[in-house]
Nucleic acid binder design. Structure first.
Lengths: 352, 352
DNA sequence: GTGAAAGCGCTAACAA
DNA sequence: TTGTTAGCGCTTTCAC
């Protein structure tokens, strides 16, 4: 017997290691059917005979078979995934939208890939490029401002894309959001109607955070329209650890730089809450000495003393609506892209 | 010319449609190199000649090639994914951990699959089964209680698993957490040391939320040990919309059922915040008439008036530590599983 | 109702 | 430094 002769009864060396996990073929040979029949049993149980069904199911549970979705994906050209791109995971608003998205998608068999851009469009671009490698069947993204490369990539991707949380006349594909600008304009209109004459707007304005920037623009437009001649006062702070902490810093700065302010309007409820609680501590009475408003209608807004005047926005609904839209367009790729304005609601409370 | 003879110059009909997207082979033929060289150029640029590198990179950008990771996964038996299983996406604590996890994983080329169990172990089981089909290279999971089927599945999965946010002597594999029981015991010890004699514990206690249940157990043990003869008062509420709202309901019930309470201890800061703000509204002075404590050291805790006595737990650090652990064990599968107790810190403030 | 053959797009292993 | 070959585990297509 020479080396060249394979020994009888011994399988030839495989040219590469397998995953060593249970495969369709293993289940098939245990159940004495073809691999194809196992696949059918799993995906279309009604197409196989009852006897086969039973045999295969027993083989599956005996072997602990877990289908390899990468192989399935490759063969079927369907990934069963949706990519979700958000600015940040912490901070509840986007998490709420994700929860809504997942609630709609997961019962329909889609899994969610999540990535955060940290409010950075370059980072967003890298993230999306990587994610596209998974061939997601749909994409959920916060914001309507993107690099031109990403715009092109997504326009040509052939999958449904839902931009969210902003409003634009030129979405890449579908859009589920509201106008942050109009929302701030509405709350400014509300407080001006209440008699306030010297509003100051306060927030953090990262260059790539178009929602915050839209809000600032809304403030500017509202003041110019409603209080002609009035200075447009905007205060910003660098983002840091702790939103309420930022609120107290913004309060400090507003008091120092614009003591004439009669209503301090924040770009989120968390800043407003920090400032309002700081007012308590300093004995500044709200709204008598200084009125305060927020944005977002977080739960804390209605529990604060006094409760916070703010704008409610549809966090969770953005996720569920976008999810449903993606499902519809995956089911029927000829469906038209949609533009859904979920709007906002000014919530008048006692802080202004 | 018979039917059997292929016509000269005409490729045989493909037996199935391709994905119709750009492939390695397309790039290769454009660059006049073999597919393997394209693969190498992408993955190990230093192994190809400068000239080839340039040619291939030009071909890639010309074609807009995006590698198909499902194919890569299948061929290499490496998915580049980590699965993360959390009870809920909304509510910042787990989102913070996810953020930490992603911060460590994503620079190392891993993508995160996220699923939420809604505090339901059966749901968790279904979720994990589905996720395993993606062949994640590691698994991050909140909690140490799982169905026995899942325990077995994960023990035999061959991938590193990190359980988090609890403490146990029998983890499936690695563990990064702290003892919720000890944490509550510590804060009870603190308030008893301050002279309080009639503590009541309040929270929501879902059967599958072992963290909340551990906290309740810690309270019981502490009271029995420190205040012999004292009744162990626990109030629960059904989970609902709005944590602060739950806090006000729990306050109501504590006042009604246990008026002797001198310190009301909540299982999370959010409940405590809701109750504390409700006390303001009702003119109940804190801590004079009623002391209040929380759990978690959320940002709001130090901004409340009076600031909230609570227990700080390492939310984000759980994510980063678990992520590092997963990376280490993926790099070196022979490494020992680790058990890391990140501990907690009682934060004495003025609310108790 | 079931099976055989081919191939999805990539990488491992080996050869040159 | 580069190319060739043989799969990874599944689904599609088509035949029976």
């Amino acid at each position: 017997m020479t080396d060249a002769e394979p020994r009888a009864g011994v399988a030839p060396q495989p040219t590469r290691r397998s995953t060593r996990s249970v495969t369709l073929a293993d289940v098939a040979s245990l159940a004495n059917v073809s691999p194809q029949t196992v696949s059918r049993t799993i995906r279309y149980p009604s197409l196989v005979s009852e006897q086969t069904l039973e045999r295969v199911q027993r083989a599956i549970s005996l072997t602990g078979y877990v289908p390899n979705l990468a192989a399935s994906n490759l063969a079927s050209n369907r990934s069963g995934t949706i990519a979700a791109i958000i600015p940040s995971m912490s901070g509840s608003v986007f998490a709420d939208a994700l929860q809504g998205l997942d609630a709609v998608l997961s019962p329909n068999g889609f899994q969610l890939f999540v990535g955060s851009t940290d409010y950075d469009l370059e980072h967003e671009e890298r993230l999306i490029r990587t994610f596209m490698g998974r061939r997601p069947e749909g994409l959920f993204i916060v914001g309507t401002r993107h690099t031109t490369a990403i715009r092109m990539l997504l326009e040509n991707s052939g999958i449904p894309v839902v931009e969210t949380w902003n409003w634009t006349d030129e979405p890449i594909d579908s859009l589920v959001g509201f106008s942050n600008r109009d929302a701030i304009e509405a709350i400014v209109t509300h407080v001006v109607g209440k008699g306030y004459k010297h509003p100051t707007f306060a927030g953090t304005f990262r260059p790539d955070d178009s929602r915050a920037i839209d809000r600032q623009a809304g403030f500017r437009r509202a003041v110019e329209g409603l209080l002609p001649g009035e200075q447009v006062r905007v205060i910003d702070a660098v983002p840091g650890h702790g939103d309420m902490e930022i609120g107290t810093r913004l309060l400090d700065e507003a008091l120092a730089r614009h003591p004439e302010t009669d209503v301090l309007m924040f770009s989120t409820d968390l800043f407003a809450a920090g400032a309002l609680l700081e007012c308590h501590r300093r004995g500044i009475s709200v709204p008598e000495q200084l009125a305060i408003t927020g944005f977002g209608d977080f739960e804390i807004a209605r529990h604060l003393v006094p409760p916070l005047t703010t704008v409610a926005v549809p966090n969770t609904e953005i996720g569920t609506t976008a999810g449903q839209l993606l499902l519809d367009r995956i089911a029927d790729p000829t469906a038209e892209p949609a533009r859904i304005d979920l709007g906002f609601t000014v919530i008048p409370r006692d802080s202004a």
